[in-house]
Design a protein around this nucleic acid. Structure first.
Lengths: 220, 220
DNA sequence: ACATAACCGGAGCATCTGCCTCCACTTGGA
DNA sequence: TCCAAGTGGAGGCAGATGCTCCGGTTATGT
């Protein structure tokens, strides 16, 4: 870090570094950026000291991990932009983007909040935005998405659906797709029949379970 | 509390009790049930000791406050059920219910989570549920709400929209109405044109502000 | 006017959680 | 074999939160 000489790590050190990164990925995905470095160390079966020697602070660990994940969203966006059907492109991007954020809560938090630190992530977000604007613009041009939709509305939808997904995560990890579909049906300017629901609704037990879990989680 | 003799409080004590209740209402509404009793005391310009003498623990304070608020939701539901137009009834209830929850985050938390404590609130929720089921059932019977919608989906929608509202609370307190409208448009089985948006979208400054605030709030 | 029970404020205690440092001990590999 | 590189985890520090305690104040009945 101090000098440019990138002497390779000792083999055991490199192994530990990987374990830390792996554990961080898992815990950040499950619990969001709130996951503590102590937890990560425990999960990686490594002392906290080891974590801190390798990653001077939490910010750097996060930066190291999430640049690539933001890349995935950008990739999804550009891939969608290359599709010929404007509606399919729009719908597929929204769905894929939500999938990524549901799998990884920390990713969602980084996408929806600004933090003075994390310039690399900030830059990543700024690369994504114009591509999303293009996807939306093309769909509106083609008349398959309502004219009055703004890009900022996509932020709201993502946040809302993401939180709903977190709510039912344990009991019914796919339930958010119902909400996604309702939203998509609400975004089309001209639509005779509703699209078919992709997954069944929550049963009573799943509802009870979600409400209980969420209450407990909040209390922590 | 110990004996049945309900000797009235001294005048200053009664005054302080009211100030505590008022402040609790305000802070719970703004910050959710997470608001601490110390905060409430400070806001009420009263010592913490005074709060704890009057309300042995947080639970009792919450129970005292929110029974009436749940009543408001129940009232909104029964009022809607009396309307003649099934769609208007359904839409108006959803909208009114969201309004109440956006105004008061603690109310939303109590509606969407189960806590072993708070039996009175639990009972309140159970009174509301069948009325909502009736509103939804009637709308589906009349063919104005998609058949495949379950009551549990309304939970998801409320949670999601509620969180989106919290997200933009500072910068654009009415922005959630756009998401609500998109969802409502997605719930109609047969719809040619999108309904007009009730409020303008967020401008860039409002977006930046929401993202910044949310990041800060989360970090706390 | 005065006595006194009721009430008040807020310093302070206990607890918890999270970030991070330090240093005595262990180990890979030249 | 030897030691720089690496390790683990106790513990310091800081901030939040729930709650108690008690010296001092005040309302109220007589």
């Amino acid at each position: 870090m101090a000098t440019i000489s990138e002497r390779p790590l000792r083999r055991d050190a490199e192994r530990n570094r990987q374990r830390i990164l792996d554990s961080a990925r898992v815990l950040f995905a499950e619990r969001g950026l709130g996951a503590s470095l102590d937890e990560i160390a425990r999960h990686a079966d490594v002392g906290v000291g080891t974590v801190y020697r390798r990653f001077p602070d939490k910010e750097q660990l996060i930066d190291a991990l999430f640049e690539e994940r933001l890349g995935e969203i950008l990739a999804a966006a550009t891939a969608s932009l290359e599709m010929s059907d404007p509606w399919a492109a729009f719908a597929q991007f929204l769905e894929r983007s939500m999938e990524l954020q549901v799998e990884d809560r920390a990713l969602k938090e980084l996408l929806l909040s600004t933090t003075a630190a994390h310039e690399r992530i900030e830059r990543g977000r700024q690369q994504i935005q114009p591509v999303v604007a293009a996807i939306l613009g093309r769909a509106q041009q083609a008349g398959v998405v309502r004219e009055d939709l703004a890009i900022s509305d996509l932020l709201l939808l993502q946040h809302g659906i993401g939180e709903a997904a977190a709510y039912t995560r344990e009991a019914a990890p796919e339930a958010w797709r119902r909400m996604m579909l309702i939203a998509l049906d609400g975004l089309r300017p001209d639509r005779r029949r509703p699209s078919p629901m992709p997954v069944p609704p929550l049963d009573d037990e799943q509802v009870v379970c979600s409400m209980r879990d969420w209450g407990l989680r909040r209390r922590r």
